[in-house]
Design a protein around this nucleic acid. Structure first.
Length: 270
DNA sequence: ATGGTTGGGGTCCAA
């Protein structure tokens, strides 16, 4: 049985629930992971998502800001949240997907919304940047246990870092722009390598191909100017690397009415 | 170097 997993920073799930429905009709992911739901759990659109075929949920919500959720056609269990950096912010939720797949048993999925980090790339001048770096370091520790890389795991979400040269529209111009600074990139790559993760998006579209998942609202003419960044990621653990058959950046949602500034990233596992 | 846009909650903060 194949399983399609998608991640999407939706930038208010209530405002864009019809946009979600439109995407689901086209792409029909089995597991749909959101970041920036921006609502309390009581306000989360469970019933709309149930109508779209999602009966199972793992939600870590807070009022107004951040917030992550997993909506799934397959049963979820062992739902957990971790308060990275102990700030009481809803930036992580994990669950085990009972997949019934042929090439893998259950999958542990970790959905992250990494802090954006503010505007100034200095830990002294900008506490948000410090928070972001510490958050990435805690993520590394979290996945550092010896058995971690032997599990069927997926780490996905808005990681708010574009690690590679061609993950941004202009590498040199963005070296001092938060999301692509050497300090962030170093920490994200350290997390990636120490956890034994695999990046199927980049395996399918190696450098120097440009791959973006986000286009700023502030940049007019997003499609022609194409000043994007790859901030959203789907990583899998080594045992799952052979199970990823295809990935996709679902770019077209960025051109829809009142879009999120992020687009869905999809991985198909068999 | 600057300003550009969006969303939530409430007349400003985060992205």
């Amino acid at each position: 049985m194949a399983i399609r997993i998608a991640t999407w920073n939706i930038n208010s799930v209530r405002l864009r629930i019809e946009t979600v429905s439109r995407f689901v009709k086209i792409s029909r992911p089995d597991v749909l992971c959101f970041q920036e739901i921006k609502c309390r759990e009581a306000e989360f659109p469970f019933s709309s998502l149930k109508e779209m075929g999602y009966q199972h949920f793992a939600v870590n919500a807070q009022k107004g800001y951040h917030g992550v959720a997993i909506a799934s056609r397959l049963p979820l269990d062992d739902i957990q949240t971790q308060d990275f950096c102990s700030k009481g912010e809803a930036r992580h939720v994990s669950a085990r997907i009972c997949s019934g797949g042929a090439n893998f048993s259950d999958i542990e999925i970790h959905n992250f919304y990494v802090p954006a980090g503010g505007d100034v790339p200095s830990v002294e001048a900008n506490p948000k940047f410090k928070h972001k770096l510490e958050f990435l370091e805690e993520m590394k520790s979290f996945f550092a246990s010896p058995a971690a890389s032997s599990q069927n795991r997926v780490l996905l979400g808005d990681l708010n870092v574009a690690p590679l040269e061609h993950d941004v529209w202009n590498h040199k111009a963005l070296l001092k722009v938060v999301s692509h600074t050497p300090e962030e990139v170093e920490r994200l790559i350290s997390l990636f390598e120490s956890g034994g993760w695999v990046d199927p998006i980049r395996n399918q579209a190696p450098e120097p191909e440009k791959v973006f998942t986000w286009w700023s609202y502030r940049s007019p003419n997003w499609l022609l100017a194409n000043k994007g960044r790859r901030l959203d990621h789907i990583w899998v653990s080594e045992p799952l690397s052979g199970a990823v058959k295809k990935t996709e950046i679902f770019k077209e949602t960025r051109g829809w009415d009142r879009p999120s500034d992020h687009v869905p990233v999809i991985a198909d596992l068999i």
